[in-house]
Design a binder for these strands. Structure first.
Lengths: 207, 207
DNA sequence: GTCTATAGGAGGATAGAC
DNA sequence: GTCTATCCTCCTATAGAC
């Protein structure tokens, strides 16, 4: 709807977008802390500070709510990967990607998507914004993986797809939470430990 | 209740135990395939072939049902670890433990316990059979970890607790499922790939 | 101990006023 | 677009007969 006062419309649109971003951030934290199934829409509404019915004016279902949060994180991931210097060593970029994921987990902003079959998975698979992001991220990581294997900094015997899955799996690695719960290490130490076990493995390496 | 016919009581007790084991096995598979939240008691009853109310005569709640399955798996794990030769190299025992876990996952018998807070976690924490098993397994693995580090076959710079958590995390590693879904590898190859990434890491090692 | 039938409650989604 | 109040489905758990 166009009115004579364009500013007013723009302002309203901004308010709307700001509210939706607040909703997405709340959903993001809830998804990270308790997961999709345990998160209730009542809870989201309470945390955002609006009525449940108002939520449903913005997002048609709980799945769409969660999908919006997942897309938001996916876009942040894409932005981070795009910010990495193109001339950097592919192995360094892969390490940076894992470290970024760990950082997101430590601040409670990495939504844990259910690896088991769930209504959320179906919603994500038919969400083109999410799938496009996922494919772009996978292509970028896949390129670095093959480049790193070509220059023998990444184990060339591993299928690239297995490496990719292993990297993705860091996003739902429970080791981080366990180590944080133990309270024995700083966040930096935890990231370092997970990075070492991921890239160097558990076995001792000849010095 | 003691009757004159001891055989009859024993037979009834055996039937009871057999039924409970059937229930536990069903719960085990359901926990592995869909997780605690998604599993419904109706479903369990239907798969076992008895009425839901009968289930509740055996187990007082859904949490107890799942806990019984978890205890069962824990006992199988203890039995496997006990079967390993005491004179074997500690590193070999650790590898065997991880391989055993992978095998259980591949046949769909590794229940996925929610890493997030859930009513099941509380039930398990106050289940002494489960906790005792967990502590005994952790002690055994912990001993092997320290021994392997002492003889420099396991990276001595890693805290033992971080290694232990990393091993436990293999039980809910989604890489296995992803690789299996891709259909590109046999079960043996998948186990091999996960073992390599776990113990050798992603980085290339000098030959 | 097994069944059928149902209570009880949580949670996703909607109606309708403003 | 926001609210209050409500619907409706699903699921855990139990009552009560046999």
């Amino acid at each position: 709807m166009v009115t004579r006062n364009g500013t007013r419309v723009s302002f309203k649109a901004q308010m709307l977008q700001a509210r939706e971003e607040a909703i997405i951030q709340t959903v993001n934290h809830l998804l990270a802390s308790k997961g999709f199934e345990a998160m209730t829409v009542d809870e989201v509404a309470a945390d955002v500070g609006i009525a449940k019915a108002s939520l449903y004016k913005h997002f048609p279902s709980k799945e769409d709510l969660a999908a919006a949060a997942m897309v938001s994180v996916m876009h942040r991931a894409q932005a981070f990967l795009d910010s990495l210097p193109p001339e950097a060593a592919p192995m360094d970029n892969l390490r940076a990607a894992v470290a970024w994921t760990m950082g997101l987990k430590l601040v409670g902003e990495m939504p844990s998507l259910p690896s088991q079959n769930s209504s959320l998975r179906a919603a994500l698979m038919s969400n083109s914004a999410y799938m496009d992001g996922l494919i772009e991220v996978s292509d970028k990581l896949g390129g670095w993986i093959e480049a790193a294997q070509a220059q023998d900094s990444l184990n060339p015997k591993l299928p690239a797809i297995a490496v990719l899955y292993t990297l993705y799996a860091r996003a739902c690695d429970p080791v981080l939470e366990f180590l944080k719960m133990s309270g024995l290490h700083t966040d930096e130490e935890i990231v370092s430990l997970v990075m070492i076990t991921c890239f160097e493995g558990l076995s001792a390496r000849p010095t």
